[in-house]
């Protein structure tokens, strides 16, 4: 990609993000209701795990770890999530993709703009909700003060979000071959919700699952970014960072491969 192309793509992306933000601002209640639903699952987990610990449960993590994890998890899940698959599949099925194929920029720019702008708007709504959630448990929340940890957290978040976006593009691109990818997308979301650590921390899952949980990709979208803040020693994160980078690279290559192969099959319905 030349410097000119990159500049043009950047300019288009900025315009699209601005447009998306204006549109989202029209649907304020949509945002509030959506973020309330995002906070509900960790809130239930938080109450039930703390209640179980008060009833004598002995999980392999401390109460402080569990509380901090479950307060942060909704924020991290939202920031690394992606929802483009069904829209991409629809645009392939109905031929709306044509409009983007003839433009001098990436076909996925609109999806990226939608992802970024919606996350900015959601962040503004979700942060106060997470703060309200954190207030009753503030004594049990332990966050690092070192800025290096927060930079590492930011890096892990960006990598996790990139990986999930690529997975989403792969699932959406299956519409080049199949009429309906809704069930496949449902399976992906199901696997992601459980294996990412969005429901419960991966560290409380049975020890026998450990080797599998360490190599599967979804954990590097939610559990690992939180781990960059909660791990007692930063030197233990090296392997995780390397595995996460490998998954991101693999996801990028796979998304590109599936997209290019799919485009060859695309017959442009509606053109």
């Amino acid at each position: 990609m030349s410097a000119h192309t990159a500049r043009r793509a950047g300019s288009v992306l900025r315009s699209l993000v601005g447009q998306e933000l204006q549109m989202i601002a029209q649907y304020r209640w949509w945002l509030v209701a959506m973020q309330a639903s995002v906070v509900a699952v960790p809130l239930i987990s938080l109450l039930v795990w703390r209640g179980a610990m008060a009833n004598g449960a002995e999980p392999p993590v401390t109460r402080d770890y569990l509380t901090t994890y479950l307060v942060l998890v909704s924020l991290v899940t939202m920031l690394t999530s992606s929802w483009t698959a069904r829209f991409l599949a629809e645009s392939i099925r109905l031929g709306h993709l044509n409009a983007w194929l003839v433009r001098p920029c990436s076909t996925h720019l609109a999806a990226v703009a939608n992802n970024v702008s919606e996350k900015l708007a959601k962040l503004a709504t979700l942060l106060p909700l997470v703060a309200i959630l954190a207030v009753p448990f503030h004594r049990d929340i332990e966050l690092p003060a070192h800025p290096g940890r927060w930079l590492l957290f930011l890096w892990a978040l960006i990598m996790g979000a990139t990986m999930m976006f690529c997975f989403d593009v792969i699932v959406g691109s299956l519409a080049f071959w199949w009429d309906d990818v809704a069930a496949m997308d449902r399976f992906r979301q199901l696997a992601a919700s459980f294996l990412s650590g969005a429901l419960i921390p991966l560290s409380v899952m049975p020890a026998a699952w450990g080797p599998f949980l360490q190599v599967q990709p979804f954990g590097y979208a939610v559990a690992f970014p939180i781990e960059t803040l909660l791990a007692p020693d930063v030197t233990t994160l090296g392997t995780g960072l390397a595995v996460q980078a490998a998954w991101v690279l693999l996801a990028l290559v796979a998304a590109r491969f599936v997209w290019v192969r799919g485009l060859r099959r695309y017959s442009g319905a509606g053109a």
Partner: peptide, 22 residues
Amino acid sequence: SIEPVNDLAAAWRGAGQYPRQF
């Protein structure tokens, strides 16, 4: 545009699958 309240209701429903005494 209150459609996500459905996700909220579905998420809240999950509380029903845990033993109440917790």
